[in-house]
Design a binder for these strands. Structure first.
Lengths: 211, 211
DNA sequence: GTGTCTATCTGTCCAATGTCAAGTTAATCT
DNA sequence: AGATTAACTTGACATTGGACAGATAGACAC
């Protein structure tokens, strides 16, 4: 690695892997400074390149943060798969949900970035595909929990909403009742909610008549 | 020299109600430009005062946006009460949930601001109190739906998470399955989820043995 | 009316940022 | 080799948030 010293050694004019280096640096900067404090120039500084170099690879801030968000979705997908570990049945959904919450609590700033930042182009193919893959994990787990492959969009929305909601509320923290201090206890706070989600998905019976 | 504005109205040196005027203007600016595009100077411009005037009332950007967020929670509370209209029982929860989602869809940018912006000091007494009041509406509705005043924090988290989650996913839009185009149909997309939430809260039975 | 006090608002200044245009260096192609 | 293209740098510009001193208007005592 290069030294951080102001101008110690003559860096090569061409960085080599600046694209990837910038994305990794950007993740750190976002985590440290928050979405609002993020700056392209700070990323360039840490990567040891000129202040305008990021622009040539990503166009603008949105371009770089969109890539960060897309990789976030990929990591979310991987985390859920890892938690599920091939298991089927109701436990599949429970594990997927726990993976989702774990990811959110482990990387809260990037989790918020992925879903809510107006500096991310969520409609871009890159982001869309990564997001769809993550959603696919949930679809699969819900089907396995129901023991029924028919796709019930209402059910999927319900499950996703509840999982997403508990993750978001834990990440945002202060609104949780009775001292929601986020260190360590948060994961367990989600347990009851996750159990209820699974229970609802497994045991839900379509109401006889709906207006 | 002023007269930068075309209107020849001789504004009084003292605005009179600049605090309130700035908050209202700020809400508009946030809605139009998004959280990222927001700027104090634009607010000052629209309020017809010097660019540094907002600083005297709010300190910095966070101060102003925190006030905007707090008023958002107050409007959310009012909206839920208005939807509920004094009704009791399971329908109370259904109506509260619908009010929550309505508010989110009607003012999506401010809804996101309230929960996720790092430019809002959510721990401030102003914000905390307004948020607690909103949460209180939910607590009351869940109790009414259960027909049981005992407070079940797990249940509350589940209900809030699910409601919050569906609102957030609808606001963020593009991740919804099967063309979640947000035009008009979003409210109905929430219906099935809300029905399931109410159903789960009303009919949930504590699992026999579990920690 | 006159003078003083205080909150409110103005104008100026500074460092930092995003983005654009043009120059410089390295790698690749013919 | 020479030419072409991609990667990166330098320099510049408009805009922002925030800090500051100073101007202004209204309230209040006399």
């Amino acid at each position: 690695m290069k030294t951080d010293a102001p101008d110690a050694e003559p860096r090569p004019y061409h960085h080599g892997g600046l694209f990837d280096a910038l994305v990794k640096v950007a993740e750190d900067v976002v985590r440290e400074t928050g979405i609002h404090g993020f700056s392209l120039r700070e990323c360039a500084r840490r990567a040891g390149v000129a202040h305008s170099a990021p622009g040539h690879h990503f166009g603008d801030i949105t371009g770089l943060l969109t890539e960060v968000a897309a990789r976030g979705f990929e990591r979310l997908t991987a985390r859920m798969q890892q938690h599920r570990a091939g298991i089927e049945g109701p436990e599949a959904l429970e594990r997927i949900a726990r993976g989702y919450v774990d990811f959110a609590l482990g990387d809260p700033v990037i989790f918020v970035l992925m879903f809510h930042s107006d500096r991310v182009e969520r409609g871009s193919p890159r982001c869309q595909r990564a997001g769809d893959a993550a959603f696919g994990e949930l679809v699969s787990a819900v089907a396995s929990a129901k023991g029924d492959e028919t796709r019930d969009n209402d059910m999927l929305r319900f499950a996703w909403a509840a999982i997403h909601g508990i993750a978001m509320l834990l990440v945002d923290g202060p609104l949780m009742p009775a001292g929601g201090n986020r260190r360590g206890g948060s994961g367990e706070l989600a347990d009851g909610t996750i159990r209820r989600i699974v229970h609802s998905v497994v045991s839900y019976v379509e109401p006889a008549s709906r207006g």
